[in-house]
Amino acid sequence: MAPLELSIAVHESDPNVQFIDAFVVPTDTGSAVLIDTDYGRLDADAGPFQIALYSRLPMSQGELAVIRARVEADLFSHAVRAGSEGRRWVLALLLGLLELGLVGVLLAFLFLNREPIHALVVWAVPLGFLPGLAQAWRAVARRRLGARARAILALGELLPTTAVGRDGDSLARLRDLWRAANEPDEPRDLMRLERDARGRVRWPTAARFYGELAGAPEATPVRGLLARLRSVRRPRDRLSHPLTHLEARSQ
C-alpha cells in the first residue's frame, strides 16, 4: 500500500489568483489567525482564491490545512448568505416604487377622509410598509455584493496551496503588532492588544478582532433606539467584512 502523499503546503504566488490575507496575530494565550479580507470584494471571475499567509511563527502543513478548511467554510457560508441578495434588483426596485405609490395613495386617502377609525390605521402604515420599502432598497444597495457571491458559488475555488504573504504594509503592521505584544514589563491581555492595534499599529480590523475576542460587544449595554439599531446592524457589517478567529495556538 502506498503511503498517503504529503501535500505541498506553501507555494509561490500565482499572478491570476486573488489573495485572502490570513495573519497569525498575538493573543493573550498565544496566537490566532485573523482573516483580513472582505469576501464581498472577491471576484471569482478574475481567478481562483488563495490564502496569503503572514506569520512570524513557523507553521506546519497540518496547521495550514486547518486554516484552509476554516477559510473555505467561512467564504462559502458568506457566499450562500449573500447569494440571495440583489437578485432581479430592477424588479425589486419596481415593486418598491409600486409599494411607495400605494403608501402615497393610502396616506392621501387618510388625510382627505379624516375619521376616528383612521387614527387606528395611520400607525399601521410605517409598520406595514417600511419592511417592503427596505427590501427594495436592500436589493438595490446590495446588488453587487449578491452578484459577486453568486459568482463565488458558480466559479469560486480556494486553491489547496498557501502563498507567503509579501505585501509590505501588511508585513509592517504585523511586525509592529508583534513588537507591541512582546514588549517586556507589560502583560499581554486582549484589551491592551486592542488598544495597540487601534493606536500604535493603526489596524482597525485587528482592533475589532481583539474586541470580539474579548467579548466586548456583549459587554456593552444597549441603551436607546440608536444603540439598538446599531446593535441590529452589527451582524450585517460582519457579513460584509468577516473576522475569523480560527485557532488559538500556544507559543
Binding site: P3, L4, E5, L6, S7, A9, P58, M59, S60, Q61, G62, E63, L64, A65, V66, R249
Partner: peptide, 10 residues
C-alpha cells in the same frame, strides 16, 4: 486524501 503533519498534535 493527503496526509499533513500537525505540529500541535505532535
Amino acid at each position: 486524501i493527503s496526509s499533513d503533519a500537525h505540529a500541535g498534535l505532535a
